[in-house]
Amino acid sequence: MRHIISILLENEAGALSRVAGLFSARGYNIESLTVAPTEDPSLSRMTVVTRGSDEIIEQITKQLNKLIDVVKLQDLTEGAHIEREMLLIKVKAVDGAREELMRLTDIFRGSIIDVTGQTFTIELTGTSEKLDAFIEAVDDKLILETVRSGVTGIARGERALRL
């Protein structure tokens, strides 16, 4: 099962490596990891996407909670939640392909954010699945470069991860 774990951690040097080190030392996998400071500058918020059986996910959350720098965490996938990831993709856009790529971008509700005579750079936000689908839809030969932000997410409704 895929899980999205949101973590509030002390915004201190080394906190990120404690989390990353935990995953590698215990052989847990990380599909993606994002981290940035929150509105409270003493706290960072990290989102980790991982996969594992219920037992492994239970261990992951327990082991994370044991880290002194981890203040609080939440497994977003335990309840209704929203996940978002951003994709920037640079594609070769010449002749007929320009029209096709613009149409595709519209369908996926993305936007073209940089244009040259030869290329488009497209920005797209959504679930990881949606970004996968977009990349799938673009002709392989046209893709020059892709970069993804990794998943961030938040719980739906009143549920909030805060101190």
């Binding site: 037992e55 239970e58 261990q59 327990k62 082991q63 909670n65 044991k66």
Partner: peptide
Amino acid sequence: IDPSSISKNVR
């Protein structure tokens, strides 16, 4: 005292 010791190797 350590929750992570519980159900780690044996349920």
